[in-house]
Design a protein around this nucleic acid. Structure first.
Lengths: 195, 195
DNA sequence: CGGCTGAGTTCACTGACTGAACTACTGCTG
DNA sequence: CAGCAGTAGTTCAGTCAGTGAACTCAGCCG
């Protein structure tokens, strides 16, 4: 979509929304942000997007208030979704549902669960166990029956993304994980205790 | 998005969906199709999209089974949404909701109602009167409080789109009207005078 | 026949995307 | 302190897609 503000229709919120998130790569960046990706390099490697394009997109999304950029503890840079960005989850979910329905014959590629009670979420984000509409930070995402295990863990970031975890929660990169490789459960437990 | 099948992530239905509907203009074409646009020229005029691009997009969407192309009664060509295309309504709705929420301070630009009982639909398409999830063909769309009346009726197609009507129902173009209805002369005259 | 409409096609031009290489600024480590 | 690695970008030439205007072609209408 390239030029923002280039769709003529002033009276259509679909056009307006697409001016922000309709450019190539943008919604995939946002999807990754939901999945916990926060670092420039992780976006670049995971999406295999040219770094120049990534720079443009991130700048634009920050300018539009979808992402916020700040320095993390280690001096690096973090991009995180704002409330406005988090409000895009229904868009990402709708695309995911449609893609699952028509291009994943063996079942959904990723399932959403209510982290509190483990209930599956329906297409509108309602927990089938407790009946509540689950807020985004309480959604746990995990590989579903249609997930293809053969090409998942090529890189550590993908591996982290495809491990069951809550949306928005930063993925654990090997660096942060320290030397201890297999202690996933311990790390997760620690993390749960963390909040 | 340009090249289809160009997003690397085989395991993501969001990426898969965007390969089909993520290109520039595509979702706006689909939105117009929901609003009842069916003719090549109407898409071209309403969206102000280059005709060459429109040709590409329509061909691609037909190939992918989102639209179906056939000749209508008068010998013209019609593009209509298939079931697979209609299943994209949640995507369009989610974008519309987000655009309304963040870019339309005076209220939604278009409201959805249950045509049967006139109840407003919530963000998930549930009728606030009868509580049912309303199927797409029973959704009536109409200008909402945020709709800007000053630049609506510039062309007859926009005028028809912005008149309350059910989704998927073909918009009435002056041409088609002439065959069926008698009192069209007034409409046509008014339209001509307008230019 | 002559004009009109609808559905495209053609084409020169511009501008965005691509991929690879390069820079600049940390924070370590010996 | 020099050297190295990691992170976050920038630069750049080549390519490819989008743009807008003009053109074709077929079928009607009178």
């Amino acid at each position: 979509m390239t030029l923002p503000s280039t769709y003529a229709d002033r009276n259509c919120s679909v056009a307006r929304a697409l001016e922000i998130v309709g450019e190539r790569w943008t919604l995939l960046i946002i999807r990754d942000a939901f999945f916990g990706v926060r670092r420039f390099g992780d976006f670049a490697n995971q999406l295999k997007i040219p770094r120049a394009v990534l720079t443009n997109r991130l700048k634009f999304l920050v300018k539009e208030g979808v992402l916020i950029r700040d320095d993390d503890a280690t001096g690096g840079v973090e991009y995180r979704l704002t409330a406005k960005g988090v409000a895009l989850w229904p868009v990402v979910r709708a695309l995911m549902n449609w893609g699952d329905a028509f291009y994943s014959p063996s079942g959904v590629k990723r399932a959403e669960r209510h982290d509190q009670d483990g209930g599956l979420l329906d297409h509108d984000g309602r927990c089938e166990d407790c009946g509540l509409v689950v807020p985004v930070p309480e959604i746990r995402i995990e590989p579903g029956p249609g997930f293809d295990l053969t090409d998942s863990d090529h890189d550590p970031v993908s591996g982290a993304i495809n491990t069951p975890h809550r949306l928005l929660e930063p993925i654990m990169r090997p660096r942060t994980l320290s030397a201890a490789e297999g202690e996933l459960s311990a790390t997760r437990a620690a993390e749960r205790a963390h909040r």
